[in-house]
């Protein structure tokens, strides 16, 4: 290699001298005024620092022993003890209003947290006669969905409502109870038994409802409905 190593005491190589500018002072001013290359001090490591490190190392050992799940591939929760009952899942809240509110997190995507819906597409739930009327109708809608136009208080909405039959009876009852009592709404709670009854009655159905079908369906009360079926259908 043509690179010559320059050490202190070496004379500058020829190549450099050729390139050198005539005014060395200005040329190297920043370089000349700088301090010598850094050196190391020899302050000892403080004892408290070493102690601190031992404490940390001890904590780490303890933490690994407690939280590594035996290095097993199937232990995800560090507090889980292999073989124990899967008890760490939070039970669903007992209060239907709380469960209903949690379930409503899903409904909000369309009906909004205000319950006012999206004009022209997703109908409002606040003040809606469908929500506040006979609970059998909203239960049917939740179980199988709804397609085609629906008219609420004179305004038409054409969005599609998917089916939520994967929700349990309790969950459907809870979310309807919540919706019937949220915002300015106030209507009596919905009984999970009603949901179970309607689920059984309409189990065969594969299509989403249309509004005219729902009006017809509301005329036949569910077999073991606990409440008097007094349909108060929206004017379509």
């Amino acid at each position: 290699m043509s690179d010559r190593i320059i050490g202190p005491g070496d004379s500058p190589p020829q190549k450099y001298r050729v390139e050198a500018e005539p005014d060395p002072a200005a040329l190297v001013a920043p370089t000349m005024r700088e301090m010598s290359e850094p050196t190391d001090g020899i302050a000892p490591t403080p004892v408290w620092l070493l102690l601190f490190f031992f404490v940390l190392a001890g904590w780490s050992g303890y933490y690994i022993a407690r939280n590594a799940g035996g290095f097993r591939a199937d232990i995800y929760n560090e507090h889980y003890i292999a073989g124990a009952a899967p008890s760490l899942e939070k039970p669903a809240p007992a209060d239907p209003l709380v469960l209903g509110r949690q379930t409503f997190n899903v409904c909000m995507q369309c009906h909004q947290d205000t319950g006012k819906g999206i004009p022209g597409t997703y109908p409002p739930l606040e003040g809606s006669p469908v929500v506040l009327g006979d609970p059998a109708t909203p239960v049917r809608i939740l179980l199988h969905g709804l397609q085609g136009d629906i008219t609420i208080e004179g305004a038409t909405y054409n969005g599609q409502m998917p089916s939520w039959d994967r929700f349990s009876d309790e969950q459907i009852a809870a979310v309807l109870t919540y919706v019937r009592q949220a915002w300015t709404n106030s209507a009596h709670p919905v009984d999970p038994a009603l949901v179970a009854a309607i689920r059984k009655q309409t189990g065969e159905r594969a299509q989403p409802w249309t509004w005219p079908e729902l009006v017809i369906a509301s005329k036949t009360p569910p077999p073991s409905a606990t409440e008097p079926a007094e349909p108060k259908p929206a004017k379509p």
Partner: peptide
């Protein structure tokens, strides 16, 4: 896919999220 099974919603939302989620 489980939480929002409506294609229509997805299209409207992707086109302009303000439509479905002001």
């Amino acid at each position: 896919g489980a939480r929002q099974p409506s294609r229509e919603w997805q299209y409207l939302h992707l086109f302009n999220p303000q439509i479905t989620s002001p």
